[in-house]
């Protein structure tokens, strides 16, 4: 006779119940960000597959400056470029983004938001600096387009919560 809790028996409904309970407990203890599904949806909505995905290398929280401003610096590395952005909370509830591309180039930089909000687009200067000001809080993704005539993929960051 086999013991009731033998390792060799097939999974039954009680095993299933234990594992389901464990999944619920793990989610309670270490929940994914509430907007994780939305972030994935935002980045997957870009149809172009010729992309160079930038990965987060470091994040610095500079903290509350003068009481009302919070500043974060994020660095993303892609194969072709590094994208560094500083996100400053403005006192009026909007956000300013100071960005820098390396290697520097005058290119189109797009900030995408979830549909139906339109993208914001600016041009970087020759040294790769750009500013996006008056940006609302929420999800956004930075897309760096190749220079005109340049045969290079777009550089895309993951979706960020501003």
């Amino acid at each position: 006779m086999t013991a009731p809790h033998s390792a060799d028996q097939p999974l039954d409904d009680l095993d299933q119940a234990i594992l389901d309970q464990l999944a619920a407990v793990l989610t309670r203890l270490d929940p994914p960000p509430p907007d994780l599904d939305d972030r994935v949806r935002l980045v997957l909505a870009l149809d172009d597959v010729d992309r160079d995905v930038a990965r987060l290398r470091e994040e610095h929280l500079v903290g509350a400056v003068r009481g009302t401003e919070r500043t974060r610096t994020l660095t993303f590395d892609a194969e072709s470029r590094t994208v560094m952005i500083t996100i400053v909370d403005r006192p009026d509830g909007l956000v300013r983004i100071d960005g820098w591309l390396a290697p520097g180039a005058a290119v189109r930089v797009e900030l995408r938001h979830p549909a139906p909000d339109p993208s914001q687009t600016v041009e970087s200067d020759a040294s790769g600096r750009f500013v996006l000001d008056g940006v609302p809080h929420g999800l956004a993704q930075v897309v760096v387009h190749p220079a005109r005539g340049e045969h290079a993929p777009q550089v895309v960051t993951p979706a960020l919560t501003l």
């Binding site: 994914p32 960000p33 994780l36 972030r39 997957l44 990965r55 987060l56 993951p158 979706a159």
Partner: peptide, 25 residues
């Protein structure tokens, strides 16, 4: 995916990025 990334010792924001990169791939 979240659980796998966190089990590799990633911080919250890093894990969220890894999940996105994985779906893009």
């Amino acid at each position: 995916l979240w659980r796998v990334a966190r089990a590799q010792g990633l911080a919250l924001e890093e894990a969220a990025d890894v999940v996105q990169t994985t779906w893009l791939e």
